[in-house]
């Protein structure tokens, strides 16, 4: 029903987005990837995951981009979105559809629920990236596809954790990694499509304890690589959420299948 309506609004969207720059996607090769989360057939066992090539937005969605979405999709405005799809703090810090363009436009939009993020990406012809897609993209640095063994890579993540979330967010557009993707680290948390399946990823068939990572040392046992605690903290944050939840430091970016790949 909603999907049909969003298709019907496609023309209106195209008009509304005319003033905003077109979203920039780059191709990521995917391939074999050793995730922080165990991907083996049995609980806790490691196995390399295969990730199909996909395209990822180069930057998180900005406030200007989300404002344009709200113009075209009034049902996602603050106060209009149903409470089951967005909590009370949804878009509490803006943007609103009738905001004038301003200095904050290039900052990442935050305070967006998973449902709203998903709707945005759908309207743009995409979807939210899966955790594995996000993780493989975030493993890169400026010169390497997988820089995770470099302490400097980890330190960049931790340095961001050490900054209080109360500071004003900077504009999107940090330095690009080797794929041309920006701001995967050091700006905002980002929704992923399967955020609520992270604790059971890889062993959902075996009825593993979904609370494994939630308390005490159990989490460390099931981690494939103890050095990747910096990524684990992102998983911990995402897994604390429900889909209608919004956070001041939580934004999103969209992905879509690479041309020629199955959707």
């Amino acid at each position: 029903m909603r999907r049909a309506r969003s298709r019907a609004l496609a023309i209106a969207l195209a008009t509304a987005c005319a003033s905003a720059p077109a979203a920039d996607y780059v191709r990521l090769p995917g391939g074999e990837f050793a995730s922080v989360l165990p991907q083996g057939a049995t609980p806790g066992s490691s196995a390399v995951a295969r990730i199909a090539p996909f395209e990822l937005r180069t930057t998180p969605v900005t406030r200007a981009e989300f404002r344009a979405f709200l113009v075209a999709h009034p049902e996602w405005r603050r106060g209009q979105a149903p409470a089951v799809f967005a909590d009370a703090a949804y878009l509490a810090d803006g943007p609103a559809a009738d905001d004038r363009p301003g200095a904050a436009d290039a900052r990442p939009v935050t305070g967006v629920s998973w449902f709203a993020a998903q709707a945005f990406c759908e309207a743009e012809g995409g979807r939210l990236p899966t955790w594995l897609e996000w993780e493989v993209a975030a493993a890169a640095d400026a010169t390497r596809a997988d820089a995770r063994s470099d302490p400097a890579w980890r330190q960049r993540i931790l340095a961001w954790y050490a900054q209080p979330a109360t500071a004003t967010l900077r504009d999107v557009g940090g330095p690009p990694d080797m794929h041309g993707v920006r701001d995967l680290h050091g700006l905002v948390w980002e929704w992923v499509d399967d955020f609520n399946a992270l604790f059971v990823a890889g062993d959902s068939r075996t009825q593993g304890d979904p609370d494994t990572l939630r308390f005490c040392g159990a989490g460390a046992i099931s981690m494939a690589d103890r050095d990747n605690y910096a990524v684990l903290m992102r998983i911990a944050l995402l897994s604390s959420l429900s889909a209608p939840d919004t956070l001041r430091a939580l934004g999103f970016r969209c992905a879509r299948p690479a041309p020629g790949e199955a959707r």
């Binding site: 703090a89 954790y161 900054q163 209080p164 979330a165 109360t166 948390w189 609370d211 939630r214 308390f215 005490c216 903290m233 911990a236 944050l237 897994s239 604390s240 959420l241 939840d245 919004t246 956070l247 001041r248 430091a249």
Partner: peptide, 30 residues
């Protein structure tokens, strides 16, 4: 709400699994 991390609490004075940790996993602003 200004926090970045999800947190919980395990009280050693609690009798129950996780000392309350499983029941108190809380996102920022919650």
């Amino acid at each position: 709400p200004g926090n970045k991390m999800a947190h919980n609490i395990d009280l050693h004075g609690v009798t129950g699994p996780g000392g309350g940790a499983a029941s108190s996993f809380t996102a920022p602003g919650h």
